[in-house]
Computed example of a mutant assay.
Amino acid sequence: MRTLMSVMFLVLFCSVQMASSAVISIAVAQSRCCTEFSDVKIPVKLVESYFWTSSSCDRRAIVFQTKSGKQICVDPDTTWVSGHVDKLDKKTKV
């Protein structure tokens, strides 16, 4: 009985560790900072999602995630960026 309780505790502990490390890796991926911005207007049909860089970064930026997996930093004050963000927000609300 004692061995079974020990094994169950170990399994529970390992699963909690794995779950918390997955959350940390997602948070790290979305907290990166951009050192430079792309000047190229990305076609909205190629963009899958976006996220803001961390407020602790020197320059706030929007990072567009393309369908091919690329992450592209853009200046949020660029005129076409807000249109892309609006379209992506509408797509995710549907």
Rank of each mutant, 00 (worst) to 15 (best):
63 V>F: 00
18 M>T: 11
45 K>Y: 09
46 L>F: 13
82 S>G: 07
79 T>L: 12
38 S>P: 05
89 D>A: 09
26 I>S: 15
26 I>P: 02
64 F>Y: 06
51 F>D: 02
81 V>I: 06
31 S>L: 01
74 V>L: 04
53 T>E: 02
47 V>K: 03
33 C>G: 03
49 S>M: 03
60 R>L: 15
21 S>W: 04
11 V>L: 13
92 T>A: 12
21 S>D: 04
46 L>N: 14
41 K>L: 12
86 D>W: 09
7 V>G: 01
57 C>T: 06
92 T>S: 14
45 K>H: 11
13 F>L: 15
71 Q>K: 10
22 A>H: 05
60 R>V: 12
68 S>Q: 13
14 C>Q: 12
58 D>N: 06
69 G>Y: 01
91 K>P: 01
67 K>A: 00
52 W>D: 05
22 A>Q: 11
73 C>D: 05
65 Q>V: 15
54 S>R: 11
75 D>P: 07
75 D>K: 08
41 K>R: 13
83 G>W: 03
53 T>A: 04
45 K>W: 04
52 W>H: 12
20 S>M: 11
33 C>I: 03
56 S>D: 10
8 M>T: 12
87 K>L: 12
55 S>Q: 11
3 T>I: 08
63 V>G: 02
45 K>L: 09
79 T>D: 12
42 I>P: 01
46 L>H: 08
37 F>S: 03
10 L>M: 13
7 V>K: 00
25 S>A: 03
35 T>G: 15
21 S>H: 07
19 A>S: 10
74 V>A: 10
7 V>A: 02
43 P>T: 05
4 L>V: 11
68 S>P: 02
9 F>V: 07
78 T>E: 14
77 D>W: 06
72 I>R: 02
20 S>D: 06
76 P>T: 13
89 D>I: 11
79 T>H: 11
23 V>A: 10
26 I>T: 13
82 S>E: 14
68 S>R: 15
88 L>R: 03
45 K>M: 06
64 F>M: 05
83 G>P: 01
80 W>Y: 07
67 K>Y: 00
87 K>A: 13
86 D>Y: 09
72 I>Q: 00
65 Q>W: 01
26 I>W: 13
27 A>V: 09
52 W>A: 09
56 S>L: 08
22 A>P: 01
40 V>K: 12
53 T>P: 00
35 T>Q: 15
13 F>G: 01
60 R>N: 12
43 P>I: 06
20 S>L: 09
41 K>A: 14
33 C>A: 03
41 K>I: 11
83 G>L: 11
54 S>V: 02
45 K>V: 12
30 Q>F: 15
54 S>T: 09
75 D>Y: 06
56 S>M: 07
22 A>W: 04
70 K>D: 10
48 E>R: 14
60 R>P: 10
56 S>F: 11
39 D>N: 15
14 C>Y: 04
